[in-house]
């Protein structure tokens, strides 16, 4: 860790680098944003923006269930509930009895209402409100380690399922004819998104997590012509917004998560006009 601190201090000669919370936050941003940029590409391709939003909302229910069941570490109950939610929504969606956005909306509102009801018993919601906007400055070294492990595992799984996901995003019958096990691959992907969202949500916030996942990929789509460009741009744009957002938020004394998202949004609109002019 000391080595990483040292390197960061050398690369980024800002006065805020003397605070270790800023160094930790920077490392967290360097880990979270590329992960989001990476998963975002397929979330956007598979039209899952609304789905990942719902997933973020269900974090509240995860925390609430953890409280009810007496689980001390809320991240475990959040991940467990996130995975359950992801699998159930995907299942109901593929049954095709109602349109996808309706299904997701029903689950999303149920989850958030259930979470709020449980957490607000006795008027005690305020201590959980940090989850709504997140606080990346409070991240500890141990939590950074969890993020790093998540990043490595997610990247390996990503490499393994990428081609299959790509075919799936083009046409599911075609994917099946190429030997892709559709349900399995879809489930692996949604579980992966669920885990990453839950692991990051405390730092990014329920209200903003989806923007971090979707905006860089949406911007990258506007300027890419193939898969390699798409993935590279998405990761770089996510990383850039993350670092720039964190630094700007320090000087403007604003919330880091929201500043990061605002910068992503500006980049998205720039890419949108770039595309229109092409």
């Amino acid at each position: 860790m000391q080595v990483i601190y040292y390197i960061l201090e050398k690369i980024l000669p800002f006065s805020f680098m003397e605070y270790s919370f800023m160094k930790n936050a920077l490392i967290a941003v360097i880990l979270i944003t590329p992960l989001m940029g990476m998963l975002g590409t397929m979330a956007v391709n598979n039209k899952m923006a609304f789905f990942s939003d719902a997933l973020g909302h269900s974090a509240l229910t995860g925390i609430a269930l953890g409280v009810v069941l007496g689980i001390n570490n809320e991240i475990i109950s959040m991940i467990a509930f996130g995975i359950l939610m992801a699998l159930v929504v995907t299942r109901v969606k593929s049954a095709g009895t109602a349109s996808a956005d309706t299904v997701i909306s029903v689950f999303s509102s149920t989850a958030i209402a259930l979470g709020l009801v449980i957490l607000s018993v006795g008027g005690g919601f305020s201590k959980y409100s940090q989850y709504l906007i997140g606080d990346i400055l409070s991240i500890t070294q141990k939590e950074i380690l969890i993020l790093a492990i998540t990043l490595v595992v997610a990247f390996l799984i990503w490499g393994f399922i990428y081609n299959k996901l790509l075919l799936l995003s083009i046409n599911s019958d075609l994917a099946a004819s190429r030997g892709v096990r559709i349900v399995l691959i879809e489930n692996i992907f949604v579980v992966l998104v669920a885990v990453v969202v839950m692991v990051s949500i405390k730092w990014v916030g329920i209200l903003l997590i989806n923007s971090m996942l979707i905006l860089p990929a949406a911007a990258a789509r506007n300027i890419s012509k193939n898969s390699r460009q798409y993935l590279t741009f998405s990761i770089l744009l996510a990383l850039f917004s993350g670092l720039a957002g964190l630094i700007v938020s320090y000087y403007l004394d604003t919330s880091a998560g929201s500043t990061i998202v605002l910068i992503s949004a500006v980049i998205f609109f720039l890419s949108y006009f770039f595309r229109r002019r092409k």
Binding site: W158, G159, F160, Y162, N163, K164, L166, L167, I170, R178, A220, R221, S224, K225, N226, S227, R228, Q229, Y230
Partner: peptide, 17 residues
């Protein structure tokens, strides 16, 4: 953003395109 080659390669190998 999927090129013709991306699409073809994705159906032929597991190496990410």
């Amino acid at each position: 953003p999927v090129s013709v080659m991306d699409f073809l390669l994705a159906g032929q190998s597991t190496r990410p395109v």
